[in-house]
Each structure stands twice: as structure tokens, then as C-alpha cells.
Simulated assay, not measured.
Amino acid sequence: MLATFLIGLREGLEAALVVGILVAYLTRLDRRDVLPRMWAGVGAAVLLALVIGAALTFGAYALTFQGQEIIGGTLSLVTVAMVTWMIFWMRRAGRTMKAALRGGVDRALATGTVWALVLVGFVSVAREGIETTLLLWSMVQSFGDAPSAILGAALGLAVAVLAGWLLARGAVRLDLSRFFTWTGGFLVIVAGGVLAYALSDLQEAGVLPGPFTAVAPLDAHGSVLIGLAGLPFGWAFDLTATIRPDSALAVLLQATVGFLPRMSWLQVIAWALYLVIVGALFVRGLRRSSVTRRPATRPAGSSRPSTPAAHVAAVPATVSSTPEGAS
């Protein structure tokens, strides 16, 4: 529940901030008359996300077990790719998000067509909505359709909507840069777990070699080998006798660090490589941002910069991806 709550909160807040920026800008332009068009686009994006979620939840049951596993594993891989891209995109594009959205509104108002502004609202929210739907669906599948996971996501989205509204009204201030930094790091870990679960699905379907296929190394009793003897297509470890897969501890470990009581070598290697590579890139990006935002210091006795350009260069960058009144 905590894992899906945090995901619903982060992804929902991204969408809420986008809507807040659009509403604040149209209000400042004194164009409240076009707000219904923008809300129509937002509503269409939310409906699209719900339709995709319903199709994923109810549409796969007519397939064979192998077909369900292939679809589930493939969509989980797509989810990992989207989440990874969004983590780094949010950090790069966060500072220019407000300007980009305003530019889209200006172009829509200039054309004078209803569909132009509907499209601005739709595209701005659809990306976050589809990503959230895929990520939550993948996690709920890995948790075994636990009602608490669905409830956590719903609560996270509800809090995100409330927080976005308060930010847009200027009633609350939030360090969005720090918020997205911490939740971005959390999403890196979550995406690693989704990747491991995706590979498990594809191995069970026989698409990838592993313990469920003919290439699995077996002992004298026909059981799949565990540990170093099981390299590369056996089990890396099997702790199911100690940690039941349906226990609270197993669910907690899976939700936080992507750990499963039993994992194949392919899962472990892919999980570790993802965390090491993507985690290193994420931390390196944070260090670069910290250096960029750090104000320049002048040596003792040096004079104040004489040119406006030099003065501006010494000012740390600020996050401008918030609605009016939010920081």
C-alpha cells in the first residue's frame, strides 16, 4: 500500500502541477471562458488512462497462461522504459515546463479553434496518466492484485489532486525539486523490481531461458539447481522456506527494493545492473545539478562583478515548473 501510495502521489502530483499551470495561466490572461475546453482535454486524458487500465485488467483473461505472461512481461518492460525516461526527463525539463505549457496555450489561443486547447490539456496529462496506469498495473500484478495496493494508489492520487489544488491556490508551499529528487530515487528502485518481475513473466512463458525452460540445469532428482551451480539459467537463490512469498515481509521487500524470495540468475543480474547503471546516472545528475545551482563565490578582496551578465551567472538556478504561488 505504501509503495503504490507514493507512486500515485508522485505521478498524480506531476499531472496536477501541469493542470495547475494551465489553469493559472489562463486565469492570468483573463480567459476563463476557454477553461471548459482545457478541462475537456484533461478529462479525455484521464478517461484514456482508465480505459487502458480496464483493458489491461479485464482483457487478458481470455488469453492462455502463456499469452498473459508474455503480455504482462512485455508491458512491464515498457513500463520500466517509460519510468526511467520520465525520471531523467522531469529533472531536465522541470525548469522549462511552465514556459513550454504557456507556449502551447498561446498557440492554441492564437489559432482560435476549440480542438487546439483541448489538445493542449489532453497531451499534457495523457503522458503522466498512461505512465501511471502502466506502472500501477505492473505493481498490482506483481503483488497478486492485492486490494491494499489499489487502495494505496487511489489514496496517493487523491492526495496529489488536493496538493496540486493547494499549490495552484498558493495555500501551501512545497520544495518540488527536493520532492521529485527523493521520489525519483524511489522510482529507480521500484523500476528495478518491475524489471525483475517482467523477466520472471517472460521466463515462465518460455520467451527467455530460465528455470521454467528446457535449458535449466537440473540435479539428480530433476530439481532446478540453486546458487552458483545454477548459473546461468537456474535459481540464484530460493528463500521460500524462510520467507513465504505471500507474507507481509515478502510484499514489503518486493515493494521497496524489488526483492523476491526466489529469483533466477537472469532476474538478479538484470536487477543489479539496472540499479547500478541507472542509479549511478541518477546520482551523477543530482551532483551536476547541485554544482550548477551553487552560487559562485568571490575571492576575498575581489570587486563585485561589473557587468549584468556576470551578476546573473552567479545566481543559482531555480525550479520554475510550479503553478503560480508554488515554490
Rank of each mutant, 00 (worst) to 15 (best):
A24E: 04
L187D: 04
G301H: 06
A296Q: 15
L208I: 07
A310I: 04
T292C: 05
A216P: 13
V207C: 00
L77M: 03
G192P: 08
L202M: 06
V278F: 09
S148G: 05
S138Y: 06
E14R: 03
L266R: 06
P217Y: 09
P261A: 10
W235C: 07
G206C: 07
L260W: 04
L195D: 13
D219V: 08
W89M: 11
R262H: 04
L48G: 02
L166Y: 02
L75V: 14
G129F: 09
L157E: 02
V291N: 11
A116Q: 02
G230V: 14
V42S: 03
L281P: 01
V83Q: 11
I7D: 01
F186E: 07
T297I: 14
D238M: 02
P295R: 06
V34S: 03
A255D: 14
L6Y: 06
A326G: 12
G234K: 02
L202W: 03
V123A: 04
V224L: 12
S223G: 02
R262P: 10
R107L: 14
L266D: 05
A3L: 00
V319I: 11
G59Q: 04
P305W: 13
T213S: 13
Y61K: 12
V283C: 01
I189T: 10
L9A: 07
T297A: 07
H221Y: 09
R102L: 13
L50Q: 03
A81F: 14
Q267K: 01
Y274T: 00
